[in-house]
Amino acid sequence: MTTVAAKSTTLISKTQAKKLLGIDSQDTINSYFKEFNLFEREYVNWDDIRNILKLQMFLGLKPGRFSKQMFHRFTNEEMDTLLLGRGFNVDDRLNAIKAQYYQEHREQVPQF
């Protein structure tokens, strides 16, 4: 897969992040924002999206059994290995999300 290069400093609205991550529930996205101390911020960046994506994937492995507290027991490398071993490639999914985001924003640029 082609990597979409983007600085982590790109600012994404929290509403847009919710849409890109495919989260329908406002309570769910708010709990994720709170988990990473993002709730009070207006915007998130790609590193924030990556963290939420990893948490979302982890919790989905064993719904009701894996918890946010368990998530924080792993290092980033351990979590990436665990998810990859279960067929979830965080970087591929993040690149797809970035591609979708930049495609949507490219289409919003007025043509002269």
Results as ranks from 00 to 15, higher is better:
residue 98 K to L: 07
residue 13 S to W: 04
residue 72 H to M: 10
residue 28 T to S: 13
residue 102 Y to F: 15
residue 79 M to V: 01
residue 21 L to T: 06
residue 38 L to K: 05
residue 78 E to T: 01
residue 43 Y to A: 02
residue 108 Q to R: 15
residue 70 M to W: 01
residue 2 T to P: 11
residue 59 L to Y: 01
residue 60 G to K: 02
residue 14 K to E: 07
residue 31 S to V: 13
residue 105 H to V: 08
residue 21 L to M: 08
residue 110 P to R: 09
residue 36 F to Q: 06
residue 56 Q to G: 00
residue 91 D to K: 04
residue 95 N to T: 04
residue 51 N to H: 01
residue 112 F to I: 12
residue 5 A to H: 06
residue 42 E to C: 07
residue 15 T to E: 14
residue 70 M to Y: 03
residue 12 I to S: 04
residue 77 E to F: 05
residue 32 Y to S: 09
residue 92 D to E: 14
residue 5 A to S: 12
residue 99 A to D: 12
residue 96 A to C: 06
residue 94 L to G: 02
residue 22 G to Q: 09
residue 78 E to G: 03
residue 43 Y to C: 02
residue 27 D to M: 12
residue 103 Q to Y: 13
residue 22 G to N: 10
residue 29 I to E: 06
residue 32 Y to C: 12
residue 10 T to Q: 11
residue 12 I to E: 07
residue 10 T to D: 11
residue 13 S to V: 01
residue 17 A to Y: 08
residue 36 F to R: 05
residue 102 Y to L: 15
residue 23 I to W: 13
residue 48 D to M: 00
residue 51 N to I: 00
residue 21 L to N: 06
residue 102 Y to H: 14
residue 21 L to A: 05
residue 78 E to F: 03
residue 99 A to K: 14
residue 33 F to Y: 15
residue 107 E to P: 06
residue 85 G to L: 07
residue 71 F to C: 04
residue 78 E to C: 00
residue 44 V to G: 00
residue 55 L to I: 00
residue 29 I to R: 03
residue 38 L to C: 04
residue 6 A to W: 07
residue 33 F to L: 15
residue 39 F to D: 15
residue 11 L to K: 14
residue 41 R to C: 02
residue 67 S to V: 07
residue 86 R to E: 08
residue 105 H to Y: 14
residue 78 E to W: 01
residue 14 K to V: 13
residue 20 L to R: 04
residue 16 Q to V: 13
residue 49 I to F: 01
residue 35 E to Q: 14
residue 35 E to M: 14
residue 47 D to G: 01
residue 4 V to M: 12
residue 39 F to Y: 12
residue 80 D to R: 04
residue 78 E to Y: 02
residue 23 I to Q: 12
residue 29 I to Y: 05
residue 34 K to H: 09
residue 22 G to D: 12
residue 85 G to I: 07
residue 6 A to S: 11
residue 70 M to L: 05
residue 17 A to L: 15
residue 109 V to K: 12
residue 32 Y to D: 12
residue 38 L to S: 03
residue 36 F to G: 06
residue 39 F to K: 11
residue 53 L to E: 00
residue 58 F to A: 01
residue 93 R to Q: 08
